[in-house]
């Protein structure tokens, strides 16, 4: 029982991050039908914004070497502010990498490449400004909370519990917004059929901007939380999460918000189920699992089958 609980904690704490990450992908995919490959870079920027806002100093490399804000915000304030800053970056990405192509009626596939380019530019920009070194959010940022909790004999780091709780809150807030607000329903309408939504008086361009903003906010928050948990391993550290997030997106079903959550948690649990002495192969196991699921359900767990138009 204790072992099972431990496994559950291990899986859920990792899976919650994957879910949060994949939600950003999902929101953009649902309205545009393409994947925003700059999402990993925005996630990374969220981590750096959080680090700077809590009073962290830039290291010896980069154009901003030695920079430190004259204030140090508590983590709980810095995290949402970092999310907002990341949302602003996501809006810039939408304006530069997506909108010009959309306005010209280009093939949506081209946006994959422009977003990939935007992601590479952002990562290089981070490196240019703050160098390639790693940064850590100080131990003790969570105040007097203990480093780990013991629940029914299973051990879990407090930061992981926080991560799980905040991810859960964000997911719940997102669901409420999508189903209970006018803008959320407009997003659903645009994702269903952008042309009809436009005819019904919905400003599709505005809805797309909202999707990018929320996607960036979630990415920024996820970046800050992961930075708190395992430190910021340089400008490229979002890339690994980007790959895993893609897997989650496909497993859950392209464009499905509940699917992204379910996919994230399943991939996290699948990784945790890998026997400890084979844990170096967990990526292969989780992607192998994804492969098997897709053989049975090509549309993903909660995705809808794509009807072919004749």
């Amino acid at each position: 029982m204790e072992g099972l609980l431990q496994l559950l904690f291990n899986g859920l704490s990792v899976g919650a991050v994957y879910a949060l990450f994949a939600l950003g992908y999902t929101l953009v995919f649902s309205v545009l039908g393409v994947i925003n490959f700059a999402h990993g870079a925005i996630f990374t920027m969220g981590a750096y914004f959080t680090y700077l806002l809590i009073g962290g100093a830039v290291g010896a490399n980069g154009l901003l070497a030695g920079l430190q804000f004259p204030f140090a915000l508590p983590f709980w304030l810095a995290l949402p502010l970092a999310g907002i800053a990341a949302a602003a970056v996501a809006l810039v990405v939408e304006r530069i990498a997506f909108r010009p192509l959309r306005d010209r009626g280009s093939d949506p596939l081209l946006a994959l490449i422009t977003s990939l380019g935007a992601g590479v530019i952002l990562v290089n920009l981070i490196q240019l400004l703050v160098g390639a070194e790693s940064y850590s959010i100080p131990v003790g940022t969570l105040g007097s909370l203990p480093a780990a909790l013991s629940i029914a004999g299973a051990k879990v780091r407090t930061v992981q519990v926080m991560l799980l709780a905040i991810s859960g809150l964000l997911l719940a807030a997102l669901s409420i917004w999508i189903n209970g607000s006018r803008s959320g329903k407009a997003l659903q309408a645009v994702s269903e059929d952008p042309v009809t939504a436009q005819l019904l008086g919905i400003n599709s361009a505005r809805v797309i901007q909202i999707a990018f903003g929320i996607s960036g906010f979630l990415a920024g928050m996820a970046g800050g939380l992961v930075g708190l948990s395992i430190s910021i391993a340089g400008p490229y550290f979002g890339i690994g999460y980007g790959l895993k997030g893609l897997g989650v997106l496909v497993l859950g079903g392209l464009g499905s918000v509940p699917g992204a959550v379910l996919g994230g948690l399943i991939i996290g649990l699948a990784e945790a189920c890998v026997p400890a002495d084979l844990s170096g192969y967990k990526d292969a196991v989780s992607f192998g699992f994804l492969f098997l699921v897709l053989l049975v359900r090509p549309q993903g767990l909660l995705g809808r089958p794509q009807a072919n138009k004749v």
Binding site: N10, V156, R157, S229, S231, E271, V274, D277, S279, K282
Partner: peptide, 13 residues
């Protein structure tokens, strides 16, 4: 316990 170079979360191991 085996890990991978890019691993950052070691809770399971």
């Amino acid at each position: 316990q085996r890990t991978q170079l890019n691993d950052q979360d070691f809770q399971s191991q």
